[in-house]
Design a protein around this nucleic acid. Structure first.
Lengths: 206, 206
DNA sequence: TAGATTGTTAATCGATTAACAATC
DNA sequence: TAGATTGTTAATCGATTAACAATC
């Protein structure tokens, strides 16, 4: 094991670094310093160096970081170098919107199945995927080796869906419903509730 | 000023408390202890008490907190007791989905205008709102006293939209585009990028 | 009164930042 | 070589948790 215990804060910054590095690569920039990264991402350069140093020595003293190399390394750390299949439950407006994100997303990380419990939704087409009945979740998780789940159902349904996901063997959940989900300790959950975000912003406004 | 300097972490927890308290109220529960809250929200009771104590003495020793009273107090703190108008820019799939959140959202916090720069979108109906050309943003911000903005445009457009929002006088931004926005220090920004969330979850999965 | 629970201080824990030797 | 920048240790800063007197 190379990793001691990395804090969640560190892990959450890695995708931000990754995104900006990919942007630099698109601009044909081959080398970048922690100072430049810090300037553009509004972060402390020491923090960036420290974050990266948890996982190895990726830079060169006096030079900086090779953009392409660092991209590859961060992808390895985040396990974005291998296929990661995602299930989405809740084929409403938000679910449909997110399923279109597939295109922008890293090609290794993909929504491969969409579920709903609402009779009328089932069988409808969302992008290239057909909405399946939630009952098929366990079967599809096994068949497609689905590792993560996105919850875009109403708050009242969210806990039930989370339970079903966990039972089916899903290992991580991105939850858009405004509830705190009860899941086993080893299943990470990210909450992405829009109302909560807006309400906390309200404090600073006016 | 009652408030010294409250950390963002505290402010971000308040909407979570609020939501659960509203849930308790719906269940006709009138009193709750920090211990019970902690159990249900997966938080430390001392933290909850401390968070609330920054703003006043809302509980009763030996008893706990009055649910209805605490709801009102938190709403006051977050300024959710007054009207807060929001503009959304980017009438794509995600923007459309979010505008429907209007219904679930606190009635005081409302999306009151939707903008896009794409010719074909302008004039189309999203819920009860007509999509307006982005050029009208400054005018509408003034007319409707809009305080916050939601950005749901592609990454390439996001900075430009943020600049336009700031120029128009918007005081807080919820950004769904995968970029770090450059805005004046006094304008709070929340990033709610789905890809970033999923990528950081990937680390913990499998 | 005895039991419960707050508000708050003190202790702990963890994360961020500064500083600098190593080195390209 | 001189200048730049990393990796890493030490210092600082801030946030969380424990503990407990006050009190309902």
């Amino acid at each position: 094991m190379k990793t001691p215990k990395i804090s969640e804060a560190v892990i959450r910054r890695l995708p931000v670094y990754l995104r900006y590095l990919q942007h630099l690569r698109d601009l044909n920039i081959t080398t970048v310093s922690s100072h430049e990264l810090g300037q553009n991402l509004d972060m402390n350069p020491a923090q960036i160096r420290k974050d990266l140093a948890y996982f190895g020595e990726f830079g060169r003293k006096g030079i900086g970081y090779d953009v392409q190399y660092l991209i590859e390394k961060i992808k390895q750390i985040l396990k974005l170098d291998r296929r990661l299949n995602v299930a989405l439950v809740g084929a409403g407006n938000l679910g449909t919107a997110l399923s279109n994100y597939n295109r922008y997303t890293n090609e290794k990380l993909k929504i491969v199945a969409i579920f709903d419990s609402f009779e009328e939704k089932i069988g409808t087409q969302v992008g290239t995927l057909e909405v399946l009945p939630i009952e098929l979740l366990p079967k599809m998780v096994k068949e497609l080796d689905i590792k993560m789940g996105i919850i875009t159902v109403p708050a009242t349904e969210a806990q039930k869906v989370a339970d079903q996901m966990v039972d089916a063997g899903i290992k991580g959940i991105l939850n858009f419903a405004p509830v705190i989900l009860k899941v086993p300790l080893d299943i990470p959950v990210r909450n992405a509730d829009v109302t909560t975000e807006l309400e906390s912003l309200a404090y600073y406004v006016d």
